[in-house]
């Protein structure tokens, strides 16, 4: 377990703390890291360097209501957050399609 955390500290975007989960979704569509980051930044309306900034991305994620690591009451979580991510990134998310 600690090994994965060590990788996260060394070179990871760290998921929902920043925009790691969103960039990961685009890599799953075959985009390389540079293209994936540029795509996500464009859709979120931020610069690429901001994608790895926890402070800035917390604001962006709360504003767009696409889920954060903090337990904010009333904020989108789970499927609700993913439905908003699908709309913002302009992609189909399989489990969201099942919901729709």
């Amino acid at each position: 377990m600690g090994m994965a955390v060590a990788h996260g500290m060394a070179s990871g975007m760290n998921g929902m703390r920043t925009a790691g989960d969103l960039v990961m979704r685009m890599e799953m569509k075959g985009m390389k890291i540079k293209e994936a980051k540029e795509y996500v930044a464009g859709k979120l309306g931020v610069g690429v360097p901001e994608l790895s900034d926890e402070y800035r991305m917390k604001e962006v994620r709360e504003e767009l209501d696409i889920g954060t690591v903090m337990a904010v009451p009333g904020a989108a979580k789970g499927l609700r957050a993913k439905a908003r991510i699908a709309d913002i990134l302009g992609i189909e998310i399989p489990c969201v399609e099942k919901l729709r």
């Binding site: 994965a4 990788h7 996260g8 060394a10 070179s11 990871g12 975007m13 760290n14 920043t18 790691g20 960039v23 990961m24 890599e27 890291i33 994936a36 690429v48 360097p49 790895s52 900034d53």
Partner: peptide
């Protein structure tokens, strides 16, 4: 790495 060079896992 520098923040701009981070990757996903």
């Amino acid at each position: 790495v520098e923040p701009e060079n981070t990757v996903v896992f």
